[in-house]
């Protein structure tokens, strides 16, 4: 069973639809007690960093999420904003602390990058794919204005280019983060979500 945590204004249906299409069991969860029972977790999300963190704070989910991801090592996939909140902070919105699974920060695309927001299909330059079987011929759908510039090289799955390079997917122990939207990336997304659902265990 894969649990999708409903975040404020999240794109939960797309993730749910694709996982169901691929034959996986899915549930939508909203609170602490459901979260504590999750065996595999997806953090979806669109919206801004501070609004998302505020929502988690108001619903008293921050500590539970940290416990679940860091201590209980529940396999977790963060998509787009769901990835960004895994970092420690962001230049987006009012300053606030992220989940800090990774210590680095999220920045706003500046003049070194060609498009703001970065919207559309893009390739991945695979740095550490290991068992993920990601292919550089794969394309994924992106839609974001803030990005992860640097992270320990061992945590990088892929980089992508928007004028300059940025980190497009990350991994550490039981956590994967994807800046792109596998749930909007048709056949390439099938592969990615299937991997997470079937093969990604700690």
């Amino acid at each position: 069973m894969i649990s999708i945590l409903k975040l404020k204004s999240g794109n939960i249906s797309s993730v749910e639809n694709m996982l169901k299409f691929l034959g996986h069991k899915v549930e939508i969860i909203t609170n602490k007690s459901e979260l504590l029972k999750a065996k595999k977790l997806i953090l979806p999300g669109i919206g801004s960093f501070d609004e998302t963190m505020n929502y988690l704070k108001q619903n008293e989910l921050i500590e539970t999420l940290r416990l679940l991801i860091i201590k209980n090592e529940v396999p977790t996939l963060g998509i787009c904003m769901g990835m960004q909140i895994l970092l420690s902070s962001s230049e987006e919105g009012k300053p606030c602390e992220g989940l800090s699974v990774f210590p680095q920060k999220i920045k706003k695309f500046d003049k070194n990058f060609s498009k703001v927001p970065h919207v559309g299909w893009n390739k991945l330059e695979i740095i550490n794919s290991q068992e993920m079987f990601l292919d550089e011929k794969n394309f994924f759908y992106f839609s974001h204005s803030y990005f992860l510039e640097k992270i320990l090289s061992e945590n990088v799955i892929s980089l992508s280019v928007n004028g300059s390079k940025f980190v497009s997917s990350i991994k550490k122990n039981n956590v994967i983060g994807a800046q792109f939207h596998p749930e909007k990336s048709h056949k390439y997304g099938f592969h990615f979500l299937d991997y997470f659902a079937e093969k990604f265990y700690v």
Binding site: I46, S48, H144, S145
Partner: peptide, 8 residues
């Protein structure tokens, strides 16, 4: 834009 971001 404030709530959902420009990209939406």
């Amino acid at each position: 834009v404030k709530i959902f971001g420009s990209q939406s």
